[in-house]
């Protein structure tokens, strides 16, 4: 626990120092922080509760669209829009989970894709709701305390708060009763039931928390993009990116998704010149390597080796 809190402090300090060292790479910084937050939020459901979702882009889209529509149509400040997005994401995931949690393993995953695709088609076609396929342009933002929310720097600090907040949540979960319930459900639903845990209830809580946190990041992402298109924001590939970031880093670990985000976003930047838009190639190659050689992800494998060495040392002396 202490170790993780120190880690969180290191992350905060590194995050605060980053703009001084790389003032020209703020956008990359925001992207890393957002993906770290999303992948960690995804991991609550995907790693800790063991339900792999490939539909989390829906919640990113909801967050982003609430901020955009709120600002352009109703002159609503983003914090209020984000609060509303949290409520909607939580309700949606409640209904979504109630419907699909009787499916297991890959069938659950397929159902998340189907629902997310239907939501995307709605976002593209219902002009009155989202502005339709042409997209929405955010042309107004309030300036609390004279801070320009269009400035990349302000967005960077928002993203930092978001990522640190999600990390703090997962550290708290890892030691809470809820966290143990999640792991019990993941390992074996029947045994969990025998121990007095309601698997569906536990999974629903995990999904709602995961979806709400993802929507918060979506709101910040909306501010960063300032031009929103439904077929990108609600797209399967964004869901895939979020999920793979968590899985490559290490499912069900505290620091795995963060490591995945740093690795994948910076690799994407480095190869941007040679791969152009094909930068998801890296995700494909890495997920294959991880599955074949590091089945529990980078941090998962690291933890496993660490534990093994610890036991070996203890056994020796």
């Amino acid at each position: 626990m202490i170790r993780h809190l120190i880690g969180l402090l290191v992350l905060l300090v590194a995050g605060l120092v980053y703009p001084w060292i790389f003032p020209s790479a703020l956008t990359v910084g925001v992207t890393i922080l957002l993906f770290a937050g999303w992948a960690t939020a995804w991991d609550i459901l995907g790693g800790w509760a063991g339900q792999v979702s490939l539909g989390h882009a829906s919640f990113v889209g909801i967050g982003a669209y609430f901020v955009a529509i709120g600002a352009t149509e109703y002159a609503l400040a983003p914090w209020w829009s984000i609060l509303m997005a949290i409520a909607v994401a939580a309700l949606l995931s409640l209904a979504w989970g109630r419907l699909t949690f009787k499916l297991h393993g890959p069938y659950f995953t397929l159902s998340t894709i189907a629902i997310a695709e239907i939501l995307r088609l709605i976002a593209i076609n219902e002009d009155w709701l989202t502005g339709g396929a042409t997209g929405v342009f955010i042309d107004w933002m309030p300036t609390p305390f004279g801070i320009d929310l269009f400035a990349r720097e302000a967005q960077y600090y928002l993203a930092l708060v978001f990522a640190v907040g999600v990390m703090a949540t997962i550290i708290w979960i890892s030691r809470s009763r809820f966290g143990y319930q999640l792991r019990a459900v993941r390992e074996d639903e029947n045994s969990a039931m025998a121990a007095g845990i309601d698997p569906t209830r536990t999974k629903l809580k995990a999904f709602m928390l995961s979806a709400s946190l993802t929507a918060v990041g979506g709101g910040i992402y909306g501010m960063m993009l300032s031009f929103l298109e439904p077929h990108i924001l609600f797209y399967l590939l964004l869901s895939v990116q979020i999920a793979l970031t968590g899985i490559i880093g290490g499912r069900g670990t505290i620091w795995g998704p963060l490591v995945g985000a740093v690795l994948l976003v910076s690799a994407g930047e480095i190869f941007r010149t040679s791969f152009a838009e094909a930068n998801l190639l890296i995700y494909g190659i890495l997920i294959l390597l991880v599955i074949l050689f590091l089945p529990s992800g980078i941090i998962g494998e690291f933890n496993r080796r660490l534990t093994r060495r610890l036991y070996a040392r203890r056994a020796q002396g």
Partner: peptide
């Protein structure tokens, strides 16, 4: 391995094929 593993592996293959064609 559990069924999800093969889903993720083939998802990786899908990303590689699609992006290689794009390239």
């Amino acid at each position: 391995k559990p069924h999800e593993t093969s889903l993720l592996a083939t998802l990786g293959i899908s990303l590689i094929i699609g992006n290689a064609l794009l390239l």
